[in-house]
Simulated assay, not measured.
Amino acid sequence: MPIPIIIDTDPGIDDAAAISFALHHPQLDVQLISTVHGNVSIDKTTRNAQQLIEHFHSNVPVASGASEPLIQKAVHAPHVHGESGMAGYQFETPTTSLVSQNSVETMKEMLLQSHTPMTLVPIGPLTNIALLLKTYPEVRAHIQQIVLMGGSAGAGNVTPAAEFNIYADPEAAHIVFHSGLPIVMTGLDIARASNLPYALLPEIKAMNQTGNMLYHLFQHYRGESFLEGLNVYDAYTIMYLCYPELFTARPAEVHVELSGTHARGATFVDFNVTESPTQVLMDIQAKDFQAAFLEMLQYCP
């Protein structure tokens, strides 16, 4: 049986790769795309999600969520993803309607109506997920696990201490990491252990239409370690769900710094535990990552 998932996202070029793979991999059943502020503003992330869904002629619903963090002002990253969030490829103007309800309400209803627990895959700031858990605690029993992209056991990428998705809403991240739910943290560490070398891009471009789209998006992507290769952060969440055996996961407690002049948004990862509902992905062989990336792409049109 495919794993039923809800993707909460702020597309984003690496989000586009993750969504492309999730929509087409036979082991996954995407039930909803929920959008959040992050890489760009909510109107742009929502439009980008609609464009991806329509590009693939998919009928997965898109619902718009939080436009701002719980407390602080919104921060965006157009210098990484372009002003539109998905610079480099000409998508059609979306014509399908959004779900009429806010995405938090939509997730609540989907979870409560589902016959099997669902996996949440947040690959942007965690505002929507925190609101869902705090507003509707009854959904907890219907969540199999949360596989998120965010955080770091080492240095950050938006500040020396903080990774972008956590920095964009530290209070929301604190709520999620202290929820007691099973969490898999796919942070900067796993991307730093492997990347997508530039030598592979021509092969990706030639593979299929999705590869061609990603090739053009990647030309405009300015992620960390840009000179060495591409860190397609969000794709690791989907890869973990499909190929968990490729990863080394370690139990840990994750604490989010909510104050501090220099450390706000940092994740302090404590591996000195024997049991924890949170697992942190720490390693994947570069050749395994590249092979799995190409295999996921083969399922796409």
Rank of each mutant, 00 (worst) to 15 (best):
residue 98 L to K: 12
residue 98 L to A: 14
residue 56 F to M: 06
residue 64 S to H: 01
residue 72 Q to S: 14
residue 63 A to K: 11
residue 77 A to L: 13
residue 52 L to P: 03
residue 51 Q to A: 11
residue 96 T to A: 12
residue 74 A to K: 10
residue 88 G to L: 10
residue 99 V to K: 14
residue 53 I to N: 08
residue 80 V to S: 07
residue 74 A to M: 07
residue 93 T to G: 02
residue 57 H to Y: 06
residue 98 L to R: 12
residue 88 G to A: 09
residue 79 H to F: 08
residue 80 V to I: 13
residue 74 A to W: 02
residue 47 R to M: 07
residue 76 H to T: 13
residue 68 E to A: 08
residue 93 T to V: 15
residue 66 A to Q: 12
residue 75 V to P: 02
residue 77 A to Q: 10
residue 59 N to P: 02
residue 62 V to G: 05
residue 78 P to I: 03
residue 91 F to K: 10
residue 56 F to Y: 10
residue 85 G to L: 05
residue 61 P to C: 07
residue 82 G to F: 03
residue 50 Q to N: 04
residue 83 E to N: 13
residue 95 T to V: 15
residue 71 I to N: 14
residue 78 P to M: 06
residue 80 V to Q: 13
residue 55 H to W: 06
residue 75 V to L: 10
residue 60 V to W: 08
residue 95 T to K: 15
residue 92 E to I: 05
residue 80 V to R: 15
residue 93 T to R: 13
residue 93 T to Q: 11
residue 72 Q to D: 14
residue 54 E to L: 04
residue 94 P to A: 12
residue 55 H to M: 04
residue 69 P to N: 13
residue 83 E to W: 08
residue 80 V to K: 14
residue 80 V to T: 08
residue 98 L to M: 06
residue 66 A to P: 05
residue 98 L to F: 06
residue 53 I to Q: 05
residue 77 A to P: 00
residue 85 G to W: 03
residue 82 G to M: 05
residue 92 E to M: 11
residue 97 S to A: 15
residue 65 G to L: 00
residue 58 S to C: 04
residue 72 Q to R: 15
residue 52 L to D: 04
residue 64 S to Y: 00
residue 90 Q to K: 14
residue 66 A to C: 12
residue 96 T to V: 08
residue 89 Y to Q: 04
residue 93 T to A: 11
residue 48 N to F: 00
residue 75 V to I: 13
